[in-house]
Design a binder for these strands. Structure first.
Length: 530
RNA sequence: CGGGGCGUGGCGCAGUCCGGUAGCGCGCCUGCUUUGGGAGCAGGAGGUCCCCGGUUCGAGUCCGGGCGCCCCGACCA
């Protein structure tokens, strides 16, 4: 069923054409809004009691209003909804199914690299946060704190975890005594709370779901290797499961995690050319080990501080999938993560047709053993409605079975990434079990290529500062950077773009900083970010 | 935190200026006809008009106070 998009009262209308008179909407200044409405009423002759508002069947187009396109899509595809608590979201079953597939793909990889899962409490003593200076400074503005429990004022306030480094540190200090205890490789699947000022479904909510890996090692090299390894795991996941091309790199000092020695990131370009940090991995050095006394005796019986890491990927990644692949029809889900990879839509008029078609639909469903298939048997909505409905929800492949197909012993396949006729083909019924996996694989490759091409088409290597300032308004700029925070700040203040990362993949050589002209040895990606 | 806007059936809104039976569209329910790209007709259900107080014979509408939400700017996975 088409869900009427929820738009809050007073929220700015998306631009487009007026549903009453067809006049293009502009962003009407509040003071003018009322008189504009009156003008329409006059034109409309007799809008007795309120002019009708046509239900928005189509999304706002991405090019017209990307932010509104995103908001409505999340709601109408039933991925999530607004919770009654400010800034919080409810992840609906369809969105959660997508998240579960993300979890499964990552968890497999974590296990394969020797990690185990555990559960840690959501409450952390306030004093723990204060043990690492940078850490508390980074998080204190956005902490949710519990001061009363069981009807009594707590002697020490409890922080709702914004991340678990501190309580992990406390426990690791208890558990680790010897080099024989190392490494410790633990991952947590949980939710954390950061009281953000401005929130947006999936991208930035007060509470979000994620995984956080926490490891402890005997040497700096091992810790660093772990942080780098997990970044590779994320990149592999992003590209091979989600078909999201990413740039692997190091964060600048200012963008670094609070308490880390070095932070790594995978950055992806969204459909509006803005960057999204899609996962991060941190080499924490000995910062947390010193703050929490995580020490071990090495082979020569000397007490040493451990080297720790942490790394995470959150439900924000769902936002990345939406914004990288989605189009004006709705979601385009990567086949390997899609809750339903195939939707079967029966088409019939008469009862006899219905019986024959449903028998065939049943057979098709059974023939696709290792594919996640959903059969849409809803009565009372037309096939056309179902087509649009499942396109909104991003199902990669649609199987249409109608009387013509039954007569010919065929089915019609329609791929989500190629709209209209172009994506349709009719195949013999017996070819379906072989053809469907092929198509799913093709779709993955095709949406990956499209996203990569888009990023490349919107990435420039500016020759000078003016060109950089121009370039970051329309995408990424890859430019020499001296590494000085002052240069970074200037770019941010003047263009709103930040250093997204210093890519691992460097062209080599050396040059002059795009901002100050001093010698530079690395190039950085500049861009506007979410 | 600053600036702006808005609270009226599930959703989108009209009604507020000028107080007098609470309305429209969509959605929902039932029935019939439909169904290869967002179906049609008929009937029906559904509302403490954000909250509290005041003015008034009478408040969705006027006055005072509160709460909430959204959008735009400074901080963040």
């Amino acid at each position: 069923m088409p869900v009427v998009p929820r738009r809050h009262r007073g929220e700015r209308r998306p631009p487009g054409r007026c549903t009453r008179c067809g006049v293009p909407r502009t962003t009407v200044r509040p003071a003018l809004a009322r008189s504009a409405r009156r003008r329409h009423a006059v034109k409309q002759a007799t809008p007795a009691a309120g002019a009708p508002t046509v239900a928005d069947e189509r999304l706002p187009s991405r090019s017209e209003d990307f932010a509104e396109w995103y908001n409505q899509l999340v709601l109408r595809a039933e991925l999530a909804d607004y919770a009654p608590v400010r800034g919080c979201m409810v992840v609906r079953p369809y969105g959660w199914a997508l998240w579960e597939n993300i979890q499964a793909a990552l968890d497999r990889r974590f296990k394969a690299t020797g990690h185990v899962n555990a559960g840690f409490p959501m409450f952390i003593p306030m004093s723990f946060l204060e043990k690492e200076r940078e850490h508390v400074e980074g998080f204190s503005p956005e902490l949710a704190v519990v001061t009363v429990a069981g009807g009594e004022e707590l002697q020490e306030p409890l922080v709702v975890r914004p991340t678990s480094e501190t309580i992990i540190g406390h426990m690791y200090a208890k558990w680790i005594k010897s080099h024989r205890d190392l490494p410790v490789l633990i991952n947590l699947w949980n939710s954390v709370v950061r009281w953000e000022k401005r929130t947006k479904l999936f991208l930035r909510t007060a509470e979000f779901y994620w995984q956080e890996g926490h490891t402890a090692h005997a040497t700096a090299e091992e810790g660093e290797a772990e942080a780098r390894q997990m970044l590779e795991v994320y990149a592999d996941f992003a590209e091979n499961e989600a078909a999201v091309p990413v740039i692997k790199g190091r964060k600048s000092e200012s963008e670094k995690f609070a308490g880390a020695v070095r932070s790594y990131t995978i950055e992806a370009m969204m459909g509006d050319t803005r960057a999204l940090q899609s996962a991060t991995s941190h080499d924490l050095g000995q910062n947390f080990a010193r703050a929490f006394d995580i020490q071990y005796l090495d082979v020569s019986n000397t007490l040493q501080y451990c080297w720790t890491t942490s790394w995470g990927l959150s439900t924000r990644f769902v936002g990345a999938i939406i914004m990288v692949h989605g189009d004006d029809q709705g979601l385009v889900l990567p086949p390997r993560l899609a809750p339903y990879q195939v939707v079967v839509v029966p088409i019939y008029r008469t009862d006899e047709e219905r019986a024959a078609v449903l028998a065939e639909v049943e057979r098709v469903g059974r023939s696709l053993r290792d594919v996640r298939v959903r059969t849409d048997l809803r009565d009372g909505v037309t096939p056309g409605f179902k087509f649009n409905d499942w396109e909104m929800r991003g199902v990669p492949l649609r199987v249409e079975v109608g009387p013509r197909d039954v007569a010919q012993g065929t089915v019609t396949l329609a791929r989500r990434d190629l709209p209209g006729r172009e994506g349709k083909e009719t195949v013999p019924r017996d070819a379906v079990p072989a053809r469907v996996p092929e198509l799913l694989s093709d779709i993955h490759a095709s949406i990956y290529r499209r996203a990569l091409r888009f990023r490349e088409d919107h990435t420039v290597q500016p020759a000078g500062y003016a060109e950089l300032a121009e370039a970051v308004q329309r995408g990424f700029a890859l430019a020499w950077w001296c590494g000085d925070g002052a240069c970074e700040t200037r770019v941010k203040d003047e263009t709103k773009a930040t250093v997204r990362c210093i890519p691992f993949d460097q062209p080599g050589g050396s040059g002059r900083c795009i901002v100050c002209g001093r010698p530079a040895t690395e190039r950085a990606i500049f861009g506007r970010a979410y």
